[in-house]
Amino acid sequence: MVEFAFYVASTVALFSTVMVVVNTHPVHALLYLVLSLLSVAMVFFTLGAPFAGALEVIVYAGAIMVLFVFVVMMLNLGRKTVEQERAWLKASGWIGPLVLSLILLVQLVLVLAPMSHLTPAGTQIIDAKTIGIALFGPYLLAVELASTLLLAGLVAAYHLGRHED
């Protein structure tokens, strides 16, 4: 049962990622990108890694996508924006992602329903506590190095993004 859900979610992920690449309309492509990230999160859920799945939704699908959509919208500020948006929101654009994300939703409800005694497709359940123990136990040095990696990104972005008056 859960394995079936895994394959469905993976198929959705593959399909939506292909759609991101072939779509010529940026906003529609972004819709599929959100969907692709959500389906990857679903894959994590089915594998028994709910924390990774939740992070995937929060970090990628949530924060980055909202930012993305904002940027794309901001680029087109102007008089014609309203009509443009209306044109963008035609059913042909959003019906595909909607159907696919409904599939994901049904799966999520089935897998996460408290009454179900489904075992995950992975070998064990990896919850937030296990991840915390791993990150601050054996992987402590990697976490610290990742923080300097963030610092590197910050410094580079600060320097490159600076506007000199």
Partner: peptide
């Protein structure tokens, strides 16, 4: 592999800047 990957990124990312 974790230090390998983080190290390679840490070597590359500042150099993009």
């Amino acid at each position: 592999a974790a230090t390998l990957l983080v190290g390679i990124e840490l070597l590359t990312l500042p150099m993009i800047g």
